[in-house]
């Protein structure tokens, strides 16, 4: 499975796009918005690089596995 999956963040173990997680780490997000909104798409945090990224990004540190979705 790992060989066939694209080397994108959404398939990387460092990536987390779980809405509950994002609402916990971004204080104030729920006051006037939501991590469950369509505008967020499937963006998430890369915990290796501390970047907030599109789920379709990728880098040389890709590590196959399901991050916290």
């Amino acid at each position: 499975m790992a060989a066939s999956m694209p080397r994108q963040c959404r398939f990387c173990t460092h990536f987390c796009s779980d809405p509950a997680y994002l609402e916990a780490v971004f204080p104030g997000l729920t006051s006037l918005s939501s991590a469950y909104a369509s505008v967020r798409a499937e963006d998430g945090l890369c915990r290796r690089h501390d970047r907030y990224l599109s789920a379709r990004s990728g880098c040389e540190n890709f590590s196959p596995g399901r991050g916290k979705g």
Partner: peptide, 20 residues
């Protein structure tokens, strides 16, 4: 507002501290 900020932060690959 916040929805746009979070959407654009993801689109441009912002640092973790930018969105907050």
């Amino acid at each position: 507002g916040v929805s746009a900020a979070i959407a654009i932060a993801g689109a441009v690959g912002a640092k973790k501290e930018h969105a907050p």
